[in-house]
Design a protein around this nucleic acid. Structure first.
Length: 592
RNA sequence: GUGCCCGUAGCUCAGCUGGAUCAGAGCAUCAGCCUUCUAAGCUGACGGUCGGUGGUUCAAGUCCACUCGGGCACGCCA
């Protein structure tokens, strides 16, 4: 096989796809655009009986060519048989025009052999397709420790970053530290009251203050550092000036500790406070004003809600209505302070100025209302509509003993991430967060996360990996000579020749098919920013492995060649399972 | 009043961005498999008019409109 870039990156599946696209170009290149050719894809047939790979080429092209899909399918099929007969055992036309391909066993074995050799090159995008991503995630306000719901954000962001890197993009991880707003004033005041309490003063936390006990700890640290220096201070501005940094850093330390426990770190903690020391906000507003997208105006009173004594005031507004959105958005509030929206614009402009192509932000779906105006502002600033990619995710519900745990920040009974990690462990938490697509609310059952059964997908997948490892250990015990991983393409051909004439059971073939499809899964997961596809794939591959394990005995000392073939497939599955788990940030244990 | 998300088997969820006479897993229920490499597993059976109506299409769980049900937002708050 010509080991050019595309082949290595995608394996047989990529080869087949390119072969089909080549046929399409040759047959209809003068009538269809390249964009349409790119829409031609390959997939695993729904029914295994249909073969290893099928293509939608005929369906995709039928309409633009105004031709019968079966005729198109026939032409593509004929071309494949003529030009790529070496790849296929059999090609059939089926249904409305599907081209079903059964690959030669040799090609599947070549893939199994190549997977350990290629390593992370398997599944990598072509260089031209790679981009610079900034992934912003977690970004919770530094006013206390992180809770379960935010844990989902952390895992999504981390796995999105990992999978983008896995396919070859450049990724920068960032946490926006919201250390400038009103909630920091509340934090400082709450801390100060806890601090005074430490000295025996009888002061109560006011309504709206942060009630968590962590602030008592932080107050003790403050006392240890500064003694009674702040005890008599009552001036809010002086307290804010003096304690802001300490309060924020102390809270950030709590957050970082929990997040790092899950193996998550950031390239930068971006301080909003620091941003406002500079001119970013003014520049962003000026840039939009130059395009007549920022202007001075007044907003109508809030809809759907009676506001007593509403006094309209002239504000600095972003002209969201120019983009068909319901209402213009204030960028500075009535006190002249930047609004959240205004800060977001400035922050995202800063990201753009740092040269990133793609701005991904993992953010709670409750903030979804802000996406559209921000997207328009970003588009106006950089001229690209495809720069901003919010990843909204739904909340987490926790079940303990089958009963929902009430999560209420106000009532103070928030469920902390650290508690959950203590209870179920990092691997189970991370994987469970990934089992469901981001926009589906996730019910996290504490009991199931520690269960050792199919109820618990993380065990199922890890067990599959451990099982594969166990087989290799057992093979060693039985004195079975295990084929060493090939070191180059020449060795691969030699190893392949040595396996000539062997068969693969249906169950083993199903495993190879899963391995084969991995690059496509990675590509789609990365392109759609949907990490749950990786978890689903991991479960599917694990299932294929378990089925195969149950279907036949792999180690047969009486038949070295057949055993060698099976071990090659097992090795490929092991490598891919370990890889996908790594991208998910979950350990691939060698034994359970 | 407006916007966003969800509605698929008794339960929890997938469904590769419009495709193949049976719409898939797991759990639950029922029936099997350890004198074979970890039974933390595997094999069967049962089970759904994909919330509803209409539309676009050769083709709709997937797209559009309307509608019903559930959730979350909707301030110059964060």
């Amino acid at each position: 096989m010509a080991a050019d870039g595309a082949d290595v990156q995608q394996g047989v599946l990529g080869q087949v796809r390119e072969a089909i696209r080549g046929q399409v170009r040759g047959l209809f290149g003068d009538k269809v655009e390249e964009k349409l050719v790119q829409a031609v894809g390959v997939e695993l047939p729904r029914d295994e009986g249909f073969g290893d790979v099928s293509t939608n080429a005929a369906m995709v092209l039928a309409k633009p060519l105004a031709a019968n899909p079966r005729v198109i399918g026939q032409q593509v099929m004929d071309g494949l048989l003529r030009d790529h007969a070496n790849l296929f055992e059999k090609i059939e036309l089926a249904g409305a025009g599907f081209v079903n391909m059964t690959l030669r066993l040799r090609e599947l074995l070549r893939l199994a052999l190549a997977v350990p050799l290629w390593g992370v090159a398997f599944g990598r995008l072509a260089v031209a397709a790679r981009q610079k991503y900034l992934v912003e995630y977690v970004s919770i306000n530094p006013t206390g420790p992180i809770h379960v719901g935010h844990g989902r954000n952390a895992v999504f962001g981390d796995v999105i970053a990992r999978m983008l890197e896995r396919v070859g993009h450049t990724v920068w991880r960032e946490y926006l530290v919201n250390d400038a707003g009103g909630q920091i004033r509340v934090l400082v005041n709450s801390l100060h009251i806890r601090y005074r309490q430490l000295f025996g003063e009888e002061v109560m936390l006011p309504e709206g203050a942060y009630p968590g006990e962590y602030l008592i700890e932080i107050a003790k640290q403050l006392r240890a550092r500064d003694g009674d220096k702040w005890l008599a201070v009552r001036d809010e501005a002086a307290l804010f000036e003096g304690l802001r940094a300490f309060a924020v850093e102390s809270c950030m330390a709590l957050i970082k500790a929990d997040v790092e426990r899950m193996g998550i770190t950031f390239d930068r903690y971006f301080s909003e406070f620091a941003m406002h020391q500079g001119s970013a906000m003014a520049e962003a507003v000026a840039a939009l004003r130059a395009k007549d997208l920022v202007f001075e105006g007044t907003l109508p009173p809030p809809k759907g809600k009676e506001v007593a004594n509403y006094v309209p005031v002239e504000l600095t507004l972003f002209r969201a209505t120019a983009f068909g959105l319901g209402e213009d958005q204030a960028v500075y509030n009535r006190a002249g302070q930047p609004t959240y929206f205004g800060q977001d614009i400035a922050y995202h402009m800063d990201k753009l100025q740092r040269g990133f192509d793609k701005l991904v932000t993992v953010v709670g779906i409750d903030q979804a209302g802000a996406f559209k105006p921000l997207a328009k502002a970003i588009e106006a600033l950089c001229g690209r509509a495809d720069a901003y990619h919010p990843v909204p995710y739904e909340m987490v519900k926790v079940l303990r003993n089958g009963e929902p745990v009430k999560l209420s920040k106000r009532a103070g009974n928030i469920m902390l991430l650290s508690e959950v990690l203590d209870e179920v462990g990092v691997d189970a938490f991370r994987f469970m967060m990934l089992t469901v697509k981001p926009t589906t609310a996730l019910t996290f059952d504490l009991a199931k996360a520690v269960e050792k059964s199919m109820e618990n997908p993380v065990f199922y997948v890890q067990y599959a990996h451990a099982r594969l490892c166990a087989v290799f250990r057992q093979a060693g015990d039985l004195g079975i000579v295990q084929p060493a991983d090939v070191v180059d393409e020449a060795a691969l051909e030699a190893a392949l020749a040595a396996l000539e004439g062997q068969e693969l059971s249906a169950a083993a073939r199903a495993v190879v098919r899963q391995v084969m499809v991995y690059p496509a899964v990675l590509e789609q997961a990365a392109a759609s920013l949907e990490p749950h596809r990786l978890a689903n794939f991991a479960s599917a591959l694990a299932a294929a492995v378990h089925h195969w394990y149950g279907a036949e005995k792999w180690l047969d000392t009486a038949d070295a060649k057949a055993t060698a073939v099976r071990l090659q497939v097992a090795r490929a599955a092991q490598v891919i399972l370990a890889d996908v788990l790594k991208v998910c940030g979950v350990l691939a244990p060698e034994s359970m």
